[in-house]
């Protein structure tokens, strides 16, 4: 028997809420609750009563902002942040520059072996970051690296890729290798959304392919570039698995090399959950402020250019 009209209208009104129940419940359990709990922890501390012996001698109390005060004055964390800035200053421009270059080359008219190149450049996306770091780590080892082999054969000095300034390049290379392909696809997709007549018009006007690329194509994909920049920045602030992996191959990556490694170290090695929670809240806030600040700046610039 078909439902009565009013009942049908009611189920129809309630249906979308019902359909969203799984997502909302999961969001509450795996996003909202943990974030709330992290905030709560960041304002708490362990208080030791008396000599700290016996049951009840250690209790939790409110800490006010003291955890945040010690996080913000923690020089090791600041050094970690500085290292990440240096690392990000290499990763983001190089990765997005390459992604844009490859996308433009894929979109160029007479490109050969397009399908092969596109798939090959995209392939690192399927390789876990930890495994990528491991593979490159081996390729950086002097006894294995083809770079060292070639330089050695030519009698040139061999660089130490896992120490000093070169370490940043070595780590950045892992991220660039892993991320270029995906960003290339995002940019390429937005390039192909442009109607071909626009290019035809520019060509008839006598624009060279290079001019078309610089003056028509790049402005067209600006929104895609903003988006990829945004996500690359967020990913950069949270680099963890790659330096953790390379740490096994060199002594110059400390256990607190990146801010996220420091959070892990504080929480699970030193057992100071409260300061680790405060640190992760600070990292999250800095990430969000920087990325939204960037989005706002990018948006207002596009609006200015459009007007």
């Amino acid at each position: 028997m078909p439902p009565s009209p009013t009942a049908a209208r009611r189920t129809r009104r309630l249906a979308p809420y019902g359909f969203l129940v799984p997502a909302v419940v999961l969001f509450a359990a795996t996003f909202a609750l943990p974030i709330g709990y992290a905030l709560y922890l960041s304002f708490r501390k362990i208080e030791v009563k008396g000599l700290g012996l016996g049951r009840g001698a250690r209790g939790e109390t409110w800490a006010g902002l003291s955890n945040y005060a010690s996080v913000l004055s923690d020089t090791e964390l600041l050094h970690g942040a500085a290292r990440i800035l240096g690392y990000g200053a290499i990763v983001v421009p190089v990765m997005l520059g390459l992604a844009l270059l490859f996308a433009l080359m894929l979109d160029a008219r007479r490109t050969r072996l397009r399908g092969f190149s596109r798939l090959a450049i995209f392939l690192p996306y399927a390789v876990p970051g930890v495994v990528a770091a491991l593979l490159w780590g081996f390729l950086y080892l002097p006894s294995l690296s083809p770079v060292h082999y070639a330089l050695g054969a030519l009698g040139l000095p061999e660089p130490d890729l896992l120490n000093g300034g070169a370490l940043f390049g070595a780590l950045a290379n892992v991220a660039v290798w892993g991320g270029t392909g995906f960003n290339m696809i995002v940019i390429y997709t937005s390039l192909r959304a442009v109607p071909a007549e626009i290019y035809e018009a520019a060509r008839i006007d006598g624009c060279s392919e290079l001019q078309i690329a610089l003056r028509v194509k790049i402005p067209t994909v600006a929104p895609a570039l903003v988006l990829t920049f945004f996500f690359s920045m967020i990913a950069t602030f949270q680099v963890f698995g790659e330096p953790m992996t390379l740490k096994g191959m060199t002594n110059s990556i400390s256990t607190t090399w990146s801010p996220l490694m420091k959070v892990y170290q504080d929480a699970f090695v030193r057992g100071d959950l409260h300061s680790a929670a405060a640190t992760s809240v600070v990292i999250a806030v800095v990430t969000l402020v920087l990325s939204f600040g960037f989005l706002r700046a990018a948006n207002s610039r596009t609006r200015q250019e459009a007007s």
């Binding site: 929670a277 992760s280 999250a284 969000l288």
Partner: peptide, 9 residues
């Protein structure tokens, strides 16, 4: 939301 703020809690 950075996974970092989620991981510990």
């Amino acid at each position: 939301m950075p996974p970092v703020i989620l991981a510990i809690p």
